[in-house]
């Protein structure tokens, strides 16, 4: 390329960049206006995340479900400004830089082919966000197993198209999942036929039930309440009907329930109230 061309190009770029920070009162500068849009879009995004987690998601019955809520909020807070920046520039470009060209194109824009500073900033920001996301996820993963009492083990059997729950040591077998608060629940999951997905909704945990071997998941119920146990893995004809009732109750209610299901009171108490 000739030096003449380079000069013209540099001029045009300088002119293009100028409006970004200089010239005119503050409110007329693109940078300012775009920032206003960024704030508006971000606020909307964060509000939407708060609305969905608060009003629409099932209530928090375990620490795991709590961390699902927190994750949605935190990730939205992190992602919203970046997304909002894209939206703001897109919206601003339509509003401010649109040319009604008809069949003839408008005059060419400035030939900005790249900008090392902007690109580096963008990349740096992405890397920082990824690190934050990763640390958050790893912390949540490693903070499992905090209970002091012996965990309550519940054996979960999936089969087309029904869940069966066994409470080992008590002889109780039921289609209802009942778990106590204040104890870590250790689910041992398997299937009699095909792959199912064990998903006790408000406990915020999920793992597949595979035929032939066990999978494991733990949950720490914190609050009493009702929830649904669903199958989250397409398992054939009546997959949609593979729902079971779930309940988080107090330890005392739990042992009473076990007795009502035919457990001896000594077995029920030993199982429900546990020990170190």
């Amino acid at each position: 390329m000739s030096s003449n061309h380079e000069d013209i190009k540099r001029e045009q770029i300088a002119e293009a960049v100028e409006g970004w920070t200089h010239g005119g009162p503050l409110y007329r500068r693109p940078a300012f206006r775009i920032m206003i849009l960024v704030v508006l879009f971000s606020a909307f995004g964060i509000w939407a995340a708060a609305f969905f987690t608060d009003k629409i998601m099932p209530s928090i019955l375990s620490t795991q479900m709590g961390s699902v809520h927190d994750t949605v909020i935190l990730f939205t807070v992190l992602a919203a400004p970046v997304s909002a920046l894209v939206y703001a520039i897109a919206a601003y470009s339509v509003y401010k830089w649109r040319r009604t060209g008809g069949d003839e194109p408008p005059p060419d824009g400035p030939p900005i082919r790249e900008n090392t500073l902007v690109t580096s900033l963008w990349l740096g920001m992405s890397v920082i966000l990824v690190v934050v996301l990763l640390v958050w996820g790893m912390t949540a993963l490693s903070s499992e197993n905090q209970g002091q009492l012996k965990p309550v083990t519940v054996d979960v059997y999936g089969q087309q198209w029904l869940w069966t729950f066994k409470y080992p040591g008590t002889g109780v077998e039921s289609n209802q999942l009942v778990v106590p608060t204040g104890r870590q629940i250790r689910f041992v999951i398997t299937s009699y036929d095909v792959t199912h997905g064990f998903w006790p909704n408000s406990l915020g945990v999920q793992v597949d039930a595979n035929p032939g071997f066990n999978t494991y998941i733990t949950a720490d119920p914190t609050k009493t309440g009702q929830f649904a146990v669903r199958c989250s893995q397409l398992c054939g004809l009546y997959h949609a009907y593979m729902d079971a009732n779930g309940k988080v109750v107090t330890p005392a209610q739990f042992s009473a329930w076990l007795i009502s299901q035919g457990a001896s009171s000594s077995a029920a108490n030993a199982y429900a109230l546990g020990g170190k």
Binding site: Q160, D193, V194, P211, G236, L237
Partner: peptide, 10 residues
């Protein structure tokens, strides 16, 4: 597994 054909068909 015996869940094919007749069991998987409505």
């Amino acid at each position: 597994g015996g869940f094919g054909a007749v069991m998987g068909s409505y």
